[in-house]
Simulated assay, not measured.
Amino acid sequence: MNKPGRIRVITLGLIQDGDRVFVSEGYDPVKQETFYRALGGGIDFGETSLDALKREFQEELQAELTNITYLGCVENLFVYDGKAGHEVIQVYRCDFVEPRFYQLESVTFYEGTHAHQALWVKSDRFKTGELRLVPEAFVEYL
């Protein structure tokens, strides 16, 4: 997570399959709110955002990506767990190499010792506001 007063540079991969999008589920204990986000993570010093995207998917899901296209950059100012955060996000559209990922309903992955759930969600649930996709600018890419 963010260090206070620091801008975090991350990369996220938007994977869609028809009317579904692959996202991780998060929960803010202060707001008592569930939210969803595309998968990815931090860019290390000396690493390109594309290399970081591939590394993060490999680390988290043991998944390879293909058809990777750069979509743009999103700046995200937010409050999570009562703390202010600031991210600059390099956004890519991509696909899984292995077809099995499209058949999964959900998959558990770990970031350090924290377990997270990734799942397929119908895009319309974000477009109507029924579910919250973060950052909110991501809805424009669906």
Rank of each mutant, 00 (worst) to 15 (best):
I68S: 05
A52P: 10
F78I: 03
P99E: 10
T11Y: 01
Q62S: 07
R132N: 08
T34G: 05
L131F: 03
S49W: 02
G46H: 09
D81S: 08
T34R: 12
S123F: 13
K122Y: 12
Q90E: 14
R93N: 07
A63K: 04
S123L: 15
Y27L: 07
E60D: 07
C94V: 03
P29I: 04
D19T: 14
L50W: 01
E136G: 11
Q90H: 15
R6D: 09
Y92V: 01
Q32I: 08
T66V: 15
L12E: 05
Y27G: 13
I68M: 09
E75K: 08
Q103G: 15
S123A: 15
Y70A: 02
N76T: 14
V9G: 02
I43V: 15
E60W: 12
K83W: 02
Y80S: 07
A118L: 00
K3D: 00
E75D: 13
R132G: 06
K54A: 05
I15K: 04
R6E: 11
I89H: 03
V23I: 15
G112A: 06
D44H: 01
V107K: 02
T11C: 07
V88G: 06
D44K: 01
C73G: 05
I43Y: 09
N2I: 07
E130V: 09
S106W: 05
A63N: 08
T113N: 12
D44I: 05
D17H: 07
L39K: 05
L142S: 11
G112N: 10
F57R: 06
T108C: 13
G40M: 09
E105F: 02
V9A: 09
G85C: 09
G41S: 04
H114L: 11
I89E: 12
L65S: 13
D81H: 04
R125K: 10
V97M: 06
